[in-house]
Design a protein around this nucleic acid. Structure first.
Length: 526
RNA sequence: CGGGGUGUAGCGCAGUUGGUAGCGCACCGCGUUUGGGACGCGGGGGUCGGCGGUUCAAGUCCGCCCACCCCGACCA
């Protein structure tokens, strides 16, 4: 590929905005087919097909499809700092709806929000052995402050377990202080080698819950309870089917005793860990002396947990629901649930239509509605743009609709003209409410069906290797790290989780043949 | 960190044998358009990644540096 980056802007921005610009189809491999096609139809290249206006087909180039959607839908853009992203208002509105949906659930389970500093003394990280081993390769370290070399370097938080540990040790004295249930909404920094908007950026936004409990059982219950919260959110608000389960030893959080995750299948069959919950046992309690006196006046270590869900989840929404036309947002999280496109030819029609559009929008008070009043753009352009940006429902209102006392309704889950119906103006609000609920449900059903179609239970390792190229394998696994490493080397697939939902009995490990007590989900992962 | 590649307008690119920088899109203005990605005319926009060298003259030739991209090893 020729150069696709510029020094001043996001280096990858160029790459993302258009893989070849579409202007020189002859020099771009991806366009040769199109060019050949147009030639055979005796149309000059570029005359009949505006290739740069279309997204790449998911099947052709899923990666490029994703990159273009993120930028063109104005969810995010590349920051001038390598690996960092700017979340644009449309993307942030989506994130706000996600945070609201989660925060509501956190409050309902008794958690309180707090703010912790982004700088952590470097020595804190070193207190827990596994933790420092896991995180030191990706730390950003501050060595100078106010022009002077710091006595102790500060790390920019990659996660807050250590500073939480320090403070909890200070706050917790008695069993009467427990449990402590705190959540943080913040951003963290991990110096990743290879980044991708939303999925893996140097800095990302998330929530991290941190709790301390009197007993190991309570901590385990909390860990599982918050994983359930993530499942509930993913399924009911994001319309994303997820598989909750236990992480393998190699996949678990650095410093945790046990990690759980929810795993989702993306549109290309790869897996995305979409949320995690960790039982930290007494690892951090011992490292930071988080101790309390129990009712018998005996000093005990706390058991702690942590759990997080990040802006990565936006990547999941994009890759689970999106189609070749662009983004499809689940109605419950969409920044705009309804977009109204007014249609008119002259000033008279314009005032007629806009007046009606205002009345109509007024009736939809409970919904998130936007009216596209932009001048100088054809309705057709607006249809395509809002479909690309994933608005679940579009209302088209022009003179014809007004004359017929009706409104044209277009469902995003059925793109193009096929998703259009004309509905009576009377009772529109109720109709729209039903349509949104229906879209929400159908997105989930569609995603679940897509996952089913690509989830297999291979007979042998040869079939296993084949199915994980484009989907999930649900297979007996011995649980040994060495075995997992060999599988990864041979197939690029890793265990995603050991689902809670297990068949009874035992079986032979898909790779080494050892008798195994449980089956794992294997897949290539983001 | 290893291997490969690329830096020219916001983006995609062209720039011949060295002769003082151009095209498309986007942007701005005006007009005609507007029910599935409109068109015409006019206009603004550049330390050619940086530094140094060769030369009467460097986007172009030479050297060094920087940045970024792709592929691998590591990851919410």
């Amino acid at each position: 590929m020729p150069r696709r980056h510029g020094p001043a802007q996001g280096p990858r921005a160029t790459h993302i905005v258009s893989h070849c610009g579409g202007r020189r189809p002859g020099t771009c491999p991806s366009h040769r087919t199109i060019v050949a096609l147009t030639r055979s139809l005796a149309i000059a290249p570029g005359e009949g097909i505006m290739s740069d206006e279309k997204l790449p087909a998911r099947q052709e180039d899923f990666n490029e499809w994703y990159n273009q959607i993120v930028v063109r839908a104005e969810l995010a853009d590349y920051a001038p700092v390598r690996g960092c992203m700017v979340v644009r208002p449309y993307g942030w509105a989506l994130w706000e709806n996600i945070t609201a949906a989660l925060d509501r659930r956190f409050k309902a389970t008794g958690h309180l929000n707090a703010g912790f500093p982004m700088f952590i003394p470097k020595s804190f990280l070193e207190r827990e052995k596994e933790h420092v081993e896991g995180f030191s390769p990706e730390l950003a370290v501050v060595t100078i402050g106010g022009g002077e070399v710091l006595e102790e370097p500060l790390v920019v938080r990659p996660t807050s377990e250590t500073i939480i540990g320090h403070m909890y040790a200070k706050w917790i004295k008695s069993y009467r202080d427990l449990p402590v249930l705190i959540n943080l909404w913040n951003s963290v920094v991990r110096w990743e080698k290879r980044t991708k908007l939303f999925l893996r950026t140097t800095e990302f936004y998330w929530q991290e819950g941190h709790t301390a409990h009197a007993t190991a059982d309570e901590a385990e219950a909390e860990t599982r309870r918050m994983l359930d919260v993530y499942v509930d959110f993913a399924v009911n608000d994001a319309a994303i089917p997820v598989i909750p389960g236990l992480k393998s030893q190699t996949e678990k959080f650095a410093g945790a005793q046990r990690s759980y995750s929810i795993e989702a299948m993306m549109g290309d069959g790869k897996a995305l860990q979409s949320g995690t919950s960790h039982n930290l046992g007494d690892n951090f309690a011992r490292a930071f002396n988080i101790q309390y006196l129990d009712a018998q006046n005996v000093l005990q270590f706390c058991s702690t947990t942590s759990w997080g869900l990040s802006t990565r989840f936006i990547g999941a929404i994009i890759m689970v629901h999106g189609d070749d036309t662009g983004l499809i947002l689940p109605p419950k999280l969409a920044p705009y649930q309804v977009v109204v496109v007014p249609i008119y030819k002259n000033d008279d029609e314009r005032s007629l239509v806009l007046g009606e559009v205002d009345r109509l929008a007024g009736e939809l008070g409970d919904l998130r509605v936007t009216i596209d009043r932009r001048e100088g753009l054809t309705p057709g352009f607006k249809f395509n743009e809002w479909e690309m940006r994933g608005v679940p429902l579009r209302l088209e209102l022009g003179p014809r609709d007004i004359a017929g006392q009706s409104v044209t309704l277009a469902r995003r889950d059925r793109p193009g003209k096929s998703g259009k119906t004309s509905v009576p103006r009377q009772g529109l609000a109720a109709h729209i409410g039903e349509a949104l609920a229906d879209i929400q449900a159908s997105l989930y059903d569609r995603a679940l069906e897509a996952r089913r179609a690509r989830t297999h239970e291979p007979k042998d390792f040869a079939e296993f290797a084949q199915v994980v190229e484009q989907g999930f394998a649900f297979s007996w696994w011995c649980g040994r790290s060495e075995c997992e490493a060999e599988i990864q080397e041979k197939t690029k697939a890793t265990t995603r989780c050991i689902p809670f939902d297990q068949p009874s009995g035992s079986g032979a490990c898909i790779h080494c043949g050892q008798t195994s007590q449980s089956k794992a989900i294997f897949a290539r992962a983001y």
